[in-house]
Design a protein around this nucleic acid. Structure first.
Lengths: 145, 145
DNA sequence: ATAATACGTAAAGTACACTTTAAGTCAAGA
DNA sequence: TCTTGACTTAAAGTGTACTTTACGTATTAT
């Protein structure tokens, strides 16, 4: 009966910390396991589950989104359908990420052509040019005062 | 004499909050201004300075890096030289960002081809495949236990 | 004169995904 | 048996870039 992994063993095999496993359990990404004298005991298939979590993370999903993947659909909804919904939204976000990176690249290219001596010259030059009109790095709060 | 902007006016013209201005002052991105009965008074060229900060932020620089741009070089180092140093490093980071986004895209494409019904099937499939071997989304702490 | 703003400060809050700490329990090896 | 090491919990800490809060003062408009 190999059906009994301690949390440390699971962590070792998955390549994460025990604290991460407890955290995943806490936020609902991992099921509450049975206990043996207070300690968590896992079936080996917990490793599949963790691998799925890691896959989703690498794909850019947040913990909240992964929880949605697991529990945010009507019972019986196939995984394929769940992925469809979430991956489409995330793909748009990733594309936005790439656009941002692209914009950063052009700004950096501009910076490399800078010929200014003093800080103030550079500031005035940048303020004068329309470079300031590119899209922001990330959403900032609405702001009113 | 237009040479006297209140913090609220600067904020309005720059499109940021007054709290951001105080924060920039606190972390050394903006000079400590003179005061009129306790209130900050700014010369209009503070707006150039803020525009420069915003430019750098859009290019991906952190507050710490912008402070380095301003104060991290030997006095007299031309701005062009400062940008050279910082922009090269940042360009590499941005390229890494784009690679990560690319990897996310392929994972999401994989997710879209998923034909699994149950969560466990999907988990096993992903764990089985080598999909788990892509690079991590971002650096995680070294981890030892 | 009074009320509504704008300003001042210091400290705490925000989001995210965990980690670290503190203090205590339990089990296995020497 | 004793000691080490793995485990338990709840709560606080981490990093980033600000914002929000709480509370007090000064300016401006009516």
């Amino acid at each position: 009966m190999v059906e009994n992994l301690a949390i440390g063993e699971v962590a070792r095999r998955a390549g994460i910390r025990t604290s991460a496993i407890r955290y995943y359990e806490q936020v609902g990404l991992l099921p509450v396991p049975r206990r043996a004298s207070g300690r968590r005991r896992y079936d080996p298939d917990i490793l599949d589950r963790i691998a799925l979590i890691q896959f989703a993370q690498r794909a850019g999903f947040t913990v909240g989104e992964i929880r949605t993947l697991f529990e945010g659909f009507e019972e019986g909804t196939p995984m394929s359908a769940r992925w469809q919904v979430l991956a489409h939204v995330k793909l748009a976000e990733v594309d936005e990420m790439m656009d941002r990176a692209q914009r950063m690249r052009s700004l950096l290219d501009q910076a490399l052509t800078c010929g200014c001596l003093r800080l103030e010259d550079c500031a005035r030059a940048i303020h004068g040019s329309a470079l300031g009109e590119c899209l922001p790095i990330e959403d900032r709060s609405p702001a009113r005062e």
